[in-house]
Write a protein that binds this DNA or RNA. Sequence first.
DNA 1: CTATAAATTTAGACAGGTCTAAAAATAAGT
DNA 2: ACTTATTTTTAGACCTGTCTAAATTTATAG
Lengths: 223, 223
Amino acid sequence: MHTYTEENYLKAIYKLSEHSEEEVTTNAIAELLETKSSSVSDMLRKLAEKDLIHYTKYRGVTLTEAGRQVAVRIIRKHRLWEVFLVEKLGLGWEEVHPMAEELEHIDFERLIERLDAFMGYPKRDPHGDPIPSASGEVEMPRSCKLSEMNLATPLLVTGISNHTTAFLQYLDKLDLGLGTKLVIDEIMPFDRSMLVTINQGKQLHLSHEVAKNILAVVSESQR
Amino acid sequence: MHTYTEENYLKAIYKLSEHSEEEVTTNAIAELLETKSSSVSDMLRKLAEKDLIHYTKYRGVTLTEAGRQVAVRIIRKHRLWEVFLVEKLGLGWEEVHPMAEELEHIDFERLIERLDAFMGYPKRDPHGDPIPSASGEVEMPRSCKLSEMNLATPLLVTGISNHTTAFLQYLDKLDLGLGTKLVIDEIMPFDRSMLVTINQGKQLHLSHEVAKNILAVVSESQR
DNA sequence: CTATAAATTTAGACAGGTCTAAAAATAAGT
DNA sequence: ACTTATTTTTAGACCTGTCTAAATTTATAG
Ligand SMILES: [Mn+2]
Ligand SMILES: [Mn+2]
Ligand SMILES: [Mn+2]
Ligand SMILES: [Mn+2]
């Protein structure tokens, strides 16, 4: 249908516009895709030609409905494969992302549908991200960055917004993962690092950078 | 490592040299890959440059050991994925080949190894083809074409050498698959079609073209 | 051995994608 | 408003892989 490259551009634009209403910039895409902005400019022209994006030169881009459908479908496949790799093949959540980056481009309706069924129609991937439905709906979870939450409130870790191997391995070492209960005990003003207690036990010291990449909700159990 | 295209050429050369000692010709590759012979010539020059094939202009090609390793590894992945698609996802043997054509290019050592383990280290794919080992050994099954076997001998179907959807669906309709026991009752001299009895029951009429693509061995039970 | 046919390779063009360097447009600073 | 800095786009080149048409080599048939 589309080339792998086109798909990667559409996915990048989707991810960059996911959490804000602003137009996506050429440089932002170049940085995410580790390519040059001149290459991005070129590709934007082509994608606009195919009506996959709205593009005004020098002004940035947004996805058209057609472009959004393509992007969401890729993300659906990416996350379904990640569930498979972790749940069925027993691979670690820190190593599956690069594999899913390639598997996501394979496009057979029956394969996706069967994979979904085999996994029991999962709602979230191993990093806590929502799996878009076959019709392209994405449930936007209302979790917040740990770095923006309040002291002394029972919290539940529901997502990780940095999928690099290094970061996920670090969380493993800390014994911190999806479903971990935690309370912020103290926030250091000078570097915004924090002390937290996990699962009513061990106390950890998390840098602001780490806390920014952990998503949490206020724990149900206290309501 | 290599591009998908290079991999497809190496696989094609492997398949064409699998059952004969002769050099593989440019035209044979072009036909298998549904491309033009001028494109093949070009690619052969590049593959020889990378020492993946032995190539003498106008004389045909053979794989080097390095080239063979690449080809066999692709085939290993192709067949492992086919087992997964049929055994775990419940897809039909007639529809998995195009999917495996794409999955075979995804190359992560740990993924292959885990997939192999998940499937219980299968020896054959859903079409009866042997799955190469991780170290590149391929057990060459000594089955023969049904079209070349003798009358009145108990036979066992062990492989299918045509993976097209149309052919496999036809076999499904005939109730003929891997593991089917059969005896050749009669061979019509004028068109070499044959009457066979399967599983000691139904009698079928198979064209020579069909019989050529069914692989069988003399059934153990009679020895 | 020579003429023709078949197979193969080369030449030249093109499409998709990337890069560097240069030009153009927009944003920022005073 | 004017000048400078930043962002973005264009120009020109290159790489991979494909094609058609033409040239070359090898095979086949008298
Ligand atoms: Mn991922
Ligand atoms: Mn994920
Ligand atoms: Mn196959
Ligand atoms: Mn097969």
